Amino acid sequence: MDGFEKRREQKKKDIVEAALALFMKFGIQKVSISEIAKKANVSQVTIYNYFESKDNLVRFVFKFYVDQEWKEQKKLLQSELPFNEKIKKIIFEKGVAVTQINEGFFQDFMKDYASGQSYVEEVYRKEALPLFLTLFEEGKQQGYIDSAISNESLLYYLQMFQEYLRREDLAKIILPMTEDLTRLFFYGIAGKREG
């Protein structure tokens, strides 16, 4: 990649990062291209040259956001931490992340996810699913998951959550309950058992 291409890619990244920061703070609908341009230190024309429309920019922002979040989750899932520590971090980080997201951004993100053609779905199928299976195996080996539960059942359980979360009308309801739902997913209604 030559110097021109590097600068071009850096500008695109600056625009996407600026847009993500503004969208997460104010929501997609309330942020204008001019505000994004100002934050990214570029002209509005530059944004349109790179992304053609706000809708296309939003798609790039969603992909960038998913890649960022997945990179952190992947690092955690592949770490040497014991199963219970991984689960604690997954629950804690989800709870913290949710408090930093504008409700409108979350709703738009969930609407995109509900479309069935979301980038989230692609990352889930290709990368997350195998790592979650590995996590479940670790949980079984370390005594946190009943070894009698089949991987098929665990995957079905995971899929039920996934399918339900695709419903567009759930965004407002789910946002404040993310931490509870994550705990429920991993520990069931009986809660965490010590020992």
Rank of each mutant, 00 (worst) to 15 (best):
F4K: 15
K126L: 10
G139A: 08
K86Q: 14
R8T: 10
E69F: 03
N56G: 08
Q117W: 10
Y50C: 03
I36F: 00
L20E: 09
K11V: 11
S34L: 06
G143K: 09
G191E: 06
N49A: 07
P82T: 04
G143V: 11
M160Y: 01
G143R: 09
I174M: 11
T182W: 00
N41V: 01
E137F: 08
E127T: 01
N49D: 12
Y48F: 15
V45P: 02
Y164R: 07
Q10G: 01
V31C: 03
E137N: 13
F23R: 00
Y144W: 15
K74Q: 14
R167W: 08
E137T: 10
I145A: 07
Y144M: 13
A114G: 15
E127K: 13
F106G: 09
Q159F: 10
A18W: 01
N84G: 01
L57K: 02
S34E: 10
Y119H: 08
I145G: 05
F23M: 00
V98P: 00
K13Q: 13
K86F: 07
L170E: 04
E103R: 12
I15K: 04
W70L: 04
R125M: 11
L81E: 11
Y48V: 07
L135Y: 07
Y144R: 13
L20V: 05
Q29F: 00
D14W: 02
M110G: 06
Y156S: 10
Q162T: 02
Y164E: 04
G195Q: 07
Y119W: 02
S53N: 05
Y124F: 13
S150C: 07
R8A: 08
D180M: 11
E138A: 09
F60K: 14
G143M: 10
E9T: 09
K71A: 14
L20Y: 06
E5M: 14
S43Y: 02
E152F: 06
A18K: 03
G195K: 09
M110Q: 11
A190H: 09
E85Q: 14
V31S: 03
E80F: 07
W70N: 04
R183T: 06
G116M: 04
G143P: 05
E17N: 12
Q117F: 15
A128Q: 10
D180E: 14
D112M: 02
N151C: 02
S147A: 14
D180A: 13
I149R: 08
Y124H: 01
N41T: 06
Q78K: 15
Y113A: 03
N56M: 05
F186V: 07
Y157D: 01
D112A: 08
L155C: 09
F92H: 12
L184N: 09
V96W: 03
K192S: 09
L20G: 05
K75C: 01
Q141K: 15
S147N: 11
E194D: 13
E9A: 13
V66I: 15
R183A: 12
Q142T: 06
Y65R: 08
P130C: 04
E127S: 10
M1W: 02
L76T: 04
A40Q: 01
R167Y: 11
L81H: 10
Y50N: 11
E85A: 10
K126N: 11
Y156R: 01
I28V: 15
K11H: 12
G104S: 13
M24D: 02
A19W: 03
E163H: 11
Y157C: 01
